[in-house]
């Protein structure tokens, strides 16, 4: 190898350049794939519909029972137990006595929802 010349090294350089370009391309592609996945997951995993449904159910419950009574207590337990068993969500809510909020008698309602990923807490006057 005494007379080794370096004339051919540009070929290696070209190969390296192509490899680099490919890496950058891959980086961009990876990002775009992630965009698609996160949008779908964002929608699938954020339990928007679940929380809305729970809220409307609690308001429906207040419409029927107001604060606790025997029937209401059983329903409350239905909601908590079934949520845990079927939807893996810890749910809790309390309903207070009506208060005068700018001329209307409204009940303070606290809602808690936690499914292991998303935690949601709300205090609302209904």
């Amino acid at each position: 190898m005494a007379c080794m010349n370096e004339d051919g090294q540009w070929i290696v350089l070209m190969g390296l350049l192509t490899a680099l370009a490919l890496f950058f391309l891959a980086l961009i592609i990876n990002q775009s794939a992630l965009v698609g996945q996160t949008t779908a997951e964002g929608v699938l995993e954020f339990p928007k519909n679940d929380i809305r449904d729970l809220r409307s159910e609690i308001f429906d419950y207040i419409d029927r029972f107001g604060t606790m009574n025997f029937d209401g207590d059983a329903i409350r337990k239905d909601i908590i137990e079934i949520s845990l068993a079927r939807k893996n969500a810890v749910v809790g809510f309390t309903v207070g006595d009506p208060q005068d909020i700018s001329g209307r008698m409204l009940r303070p309602v606290t809602i808690h929802y936690y499914n292991g990923v998303t935690e949601y807490d709300e205090t609302v006057y209904y």
């Binding site: 592609i29 775009s32 794939a33 965009v35 698609g36 949008t39 779908a40």
Partner: peptide
Amino acid sequence: LESSGIDYDA
């Protein structure tokens, strides 16, 4: 990836 799958649906 170039199909509609990603951005258009979002």
